[in-house]
């Protein structure tokens, strides 16, 4: 079922790319329409899965990715509609399409272990997914910032100069996305720690619960992420690391997030493979 949103995301990607190259407003509106359609069909898919299994499908790695793509699409649409800026679409859509292929290739919802029932786990996963979506946006905005910055610095005002909003706007959007992401990352990690403490009491025999410690790759990298973004926020405010350095840091931070989200979840972690 995940194939329908995937196809629509792919069509939207083509439309956004076309719009970016040609700057035709009709194509731009079609691109947004396609993305809205993709997000709606994705909502429907996730809704159906929720009805099927009786809970929001976020427990397994694959369904978490699907939900992440959905959240990112919605967050991007929110940014596009509030700023009236379509230029970022061409950067965010490839990520959506690439990630959405994973759930499209592995249909179905994984069973949820008994230990994962309860509200704390839901809060833990959903706030982290939302944080990651914000970081993805920050990364894309950061990349566009660097592209525009380089053009202006090199005194060659060309392709991106004509298509992107001002550096100031990009910097502000980047900072805002990181602040929101950092808040949810912090909430998600704290709630996760509380949940783990409770689970140790009830499900001490589960090897996955036992593996929950800072030495687990997934948890370790998440903490690393938290430090990277905390440093970024501190540096931007206190030592004037705004602009290009902040943009590079947000790209680096999201690379770590992505690494944690896909390969580590599937291959390395011992605690988060429910």
């Amino acid at each position: 079922m995940n194939i329908v949103p995937l196809t629509l995301y792919a069509c939207a990607l083509v439309a956004y790319a076309w719009h970016f190259a040609q700057r035709n407003s009709v194509v731009g509106r079609s691109a947004t329409t396609l993305l809205v359609a993709a997000a709606l069909s994705h909502t429907f898919v996730i809704g159906m899965q929720t009805m099927e299994v009786g809970h929001v499908p976020v427990a397994g790695a694959t369904s978490a990715i699907s939900t992440f793509v959905w959240l990112l699409a919605l967050s991007y649409l929110y940014v596009e509609m509030t700023t009236d800026e379509r230029a970022m679409g061409v950067f965010i859509l490839p990520l959506l399409v690439a990630l959405q292929t994973i759930p499209a290739l592995r249909p179905g919802v994984e069973d949820r272990a008994a230990v994962l029932q309860g509200p704390l786990f839901g809060v833990h996963v959903s706030s982290l997914l939302f944080a990651y979506a914000s970081f993805a946006l920050a990364c894309v905005i950061g990349i566009t910032y660097v592209l525009l910055f380089k053009e202006i610095k090199a005194k060659h005002l060309g392709f991106f100069y004509a298509r992107l909003p001002s550096l100031q706007v990009l910097d502000r959007m980047n900072q805002r996305a990181i602040v929101i992401g950092w808040i949810f990352l912090t909430i998600g990690m704290i709630v996760g720690a509380i949940w783990a403490a409770q689970a140790r009491g009830g499900y001490a025999g589960d090897p996955r619960v036992q593996a929950i410690s800072l030495e687990d790759p997934k948890i370790f990298v998440a903490v690393l992420c938290w430090f990277v973004y905390s440093f970024e926020l501190f540096a931007a405010r206190r030592i004037g690391w705004g602009g290009r350095r902040a943009a590079y840091l947000s790209a680096l931070g999201f690379l770590i997030v992505l690494f944690n989200f896909v390969p580590i979840t599937y291959f390395f972690t011992k605690s988060h493979n429910f």
């Binding site: 700057r23 202006i152 005002l157 100069y161 004509a162 909003p165 001002s166 550096l167 100031q168 706007v169």
Partner: peptide, 25 residues
């Protein structure tokens, strides 16, 4: 709307203002 015929500043002072806008919004 469909072509770039009207885009880009074509005098030095407008080019300076356009650049300032691209940097500062």
């Amino acid at each position: 709307t469909e072509t770039g015929l009207g885009s880009g500043a074509v005098s030095v002072s407008y080019a300076a203002v356009a650049l300032a806008r691209k940097i500062f919004g």
